[in-house]
Design a protein around this nucleic acid. Structure first.
Lengths: 337, 337
DNA sequence: ATGAAAGCGCTAACAG
DNA sequence: CTGTTAGCGCTTTCAT
């Protein structure tokens, strides 16, 4: 049995309120008693029960983190940022991995509500109407992470995906590429799907290239699909000199394909990824990519959530953090011909 | 303000104990009232306060997870396994990323204790005496994950690192390799360091090869160091035909080095990694490696911790899960010559 | 400055 | 079967 405030009080020969005061407003206790209490605390290794405190303060100092796929290395960076922010702001993080599953998601909402998490960090999933319903009815502050919602007034932190894709493709064009393919997420994904595709198309359009949308193959999650997509892309459009992918994992699939078929990268085909996961530095060749500030997104979203929890006026509802084009070795100038 | 049991009782026109009974032992309440209560619950979207319950039951259904580096993809698999087990056993996971920092670790111990986590999953760090002291004094059940302690009676779940390394190197030898180098973690790491090195050396010895320990370079964490280590290894021992690394990340560093210096893999040099992180399938060439059952280690450690929490007799204090040698494309038979 | 007592939201005897 | 009551461990008036 862990010691309670009563044990400390008894040992120190004071009342429990005095012990409580020593913990919360030490100055209000006369030095002699204070020291007695502190000694007792030390001796018993006493630590106040967070549950009891939480009941009174109506605050648990815990945040729920809802992640669709914890194995996705992108989130590792985000969580790390959240972690650091949580630590400095005095929160703990409760990790909930939904595996993109609605039942799991709802069950986590319930559990977080029961545990009285002070707030929720909701990462990278589309906010469907029924999700929104659930969120509302729990009345818990929420921040959307790497996602946002145009329909609902939900605070969010992410990059501008359209602009990031635009910049990436513009860079490719600046390197002389005129026929560029893309491996995209499905258009039903309004975060990593449609906007990145739109950025891709706008870049082509604004640089006077044909943006028919034909040079795009859709894939879902894994690098294997990107491998196949690369095959398909190069079969259909043999003139392609660069491929822009909606994720680094896709890019790695493309790299594998090119290697297996003895197509030089970046000599014959340039590849540009998206996310800048840590592995992007370790691929062969090292991957050029769009860096999402994963750590900062995580960090900032906790700060924002903390503001909400503390009832600060929610300024800047939808925040967009800057992205960055990282040029490594998988992109080069277009081959002549 | 969230509704409390009193609100439900009032709305349903019963006492709070009846409401409590409806939630805990529904059969003990007459159907007519039960339904009234259930309706009230539904209408108010009532959910019992986990803090209040936790106070009474002395159970929070939360587990602390202490991880040294959440960005290490190996842990992503472990956490995923923990997550699934936690979900089915009714726990939440509180993630604590220590960054290998003792202060952070201790501060997390404190926080988990205050929050009254039911148990702690302590991953992949050496259990130093002062760590052990802290653990003891919090009297919280602990399971060691991917680590163990020979000095202390602490339950643990991991693979047998020595045997795994032995098997990996034996495989290399079976492919005709006679001069094998290793990139190892420092010997002060009694988990991923010394045992894997010992397995390496035992394999050499038992197959009649010289195991002087000279063909070993030590590195710390990152693939860059492995890149340099590979350079050093090949400079000092030009006859080497295979390199065994203590982690997949090291292996990726070696792969980069070989690629940059136009050394064929596996044609001239075979590379065998350790961990089987997801990226190991995406490297060029795909990485042969020792698979740790990360998911199962995570899953099993939660089951074990749950057993401890429920006071089951702690059978099988130190559990070793089977590893597996995964042969992909980075290993081949030794070149003739 | 300090102790007694009420109460946070809930469960669990204990009567009835 | 159901309501009343006494806590779980803590903070916070309210007296003293």
């Amino acid at each position: 049995m862990k010691p309670t405030i009563r044990d400390v009080a008894k040992l120190a020969g004071v009342s429990i309120s005095t012990v409580s005061r020593v913990m919360n407003t030490p100055e209000s206790v006369v030095a002699s008693k204070r020291e007695k209490v502190q000694q007792a605390i030390e001796q018993l290794q006493y630590q106040p029960n967070g549950l009891a405190r939480g009941l009174i303060y109506r605050k648990t100092n815990s945040l729920g983190v809802i992640i669709p796929d914890i194995q996705n290395p992108y989130y590792a960076g985000v969580i790390r940022g959240m972690e650091d922010a949580a630590k400095t702001l005095g929160y703990s993080l409760m990790i909930c991995n939904t595996d993109h599953d609605k039942h799991r998601l709802f069950s986590y909402f319930e559990s977080l509500n029961e545990k009285r998490a002070d707030g929720i960090l909701f990462a990278s999933e589309v906010v469907y109407p029924d999700y929104y319903q659930e969120m509302r009815c729990y009345r818990t502050p929420i921040v959307l992470v790497s996602t946002h919602s145009l329909e609902y007034e939900l605070p969010s932190v992410k990059i501008n995906d359209e602009a990031a894709a635009y910049d990436a493709v513009s860079y490719l064009i600046s390197q002389g590429h005129r026929s560029i393919g893309m491996i995209s997420f499905g258009l039903t994904d309004p975060i990593a799907g449609l906007p990145r595709l739109q950025g891709f198309q706008r870049a082509l359009r604004e640089h006077g290239l044909e943006a028919s949308g034909k040079q795009v193959i859709y894939a879902q999650h894994w690098h294997d699909e990107a491998y196949d997509a690369a095959a398909q892309l190069l079969r259909q459009f043999p003139g392609i000199t660069a491929i822009f992918t909606a994720s680094d994992e896709f890019a790695m699939g493309v790299l594998s394909y090119l290697h297996d078929h003895h197509i030089a990268c970046p000599g014959q085909i340039s590849v540009m990824g998206f996310d800048n996961i840590r592995m992007a530095q370790m691929t062969i060749p090292k991957l050029s990519t769009v860096a999402q500030p994963a750590y900062r997104i995580g960090y900032r979203s906790v700060e924002k959530l903390d503001g909400l929890i503390r009832g600060e006026p929610a300024s800047n509802l939808r925040e967009y953090l800057p992205h960055e084009i990282i040029v490594r070795q998988s992109t080069g100038s277009a081959p002549i011909g």
